[in-house]
């Protein structure tokens, strides 16, 4: 017995319609992808769905400035809310440089939060 899941690849704006077949041995085959990234996405989405989270953190000192940030790599979907709640508590000191690690190991995902812009 194998199961089939139909998905839209979200990796790029093309949005290929993927079919992911999951067989008894836990092996996946992806079809419908126009490029290899779609196969990676399709497999992950049925085994361990993940997302890159982008958000902002406040600049310390009570200004109305914020710095945009992201998870350095994708994190499990189930961890997105924990990640966001943890970010609410964070304040950064200026200057910030693009790529700076703002929070290490956010919400125990093993993934760091990095700045996506520089601000002085």
């Amino acid at each position: 017995m194998s199961t089939e899941v139909k998905l839209t690849c979200i990796t790029c704006p093309v949005g290929c319609a993927l079919t992911v077949r999951l067989d008894d041995a836990g092996e996946t085959t992806v079809t419908g992808n126009k490029c290899p990234r779609g196969a990676v996405y399709g497999t992950k989405e049925v085994t361990n769905p993940t997302r890159v989270v982008t958000s902002t953190v406040r600049v310390a000192g009570g200004t109305d400035q914020v710095v945009s940030v992201k998870t350095a790599t994708d994190i499990p979907k189930g961890k997105i809310t924990d990640c966001m709640r943890a970010l609410e508590q964070v304040e950064v000191q200026l200057p910030v440089h693009i790529g700076d690690i703002i929070v290490e190991n956010i919400a125990d995902t093993g993934v760091d939060i990095v700045a996506t812009r520089s601000l002085r």
């Binding site: 990796t11 890159v52 982008t54 945009s68 992201k70 693009i98 996506t116 812009r117 520089s118």
Partner: peptide
């Protein structure tokens, strides 16, 4: 590579 808007701009 997949960038955010501010990263692309920078």
């Amino acid at each position: 590579e997949e960038l955010t808007g501010p990263e692309y701009a920078e």
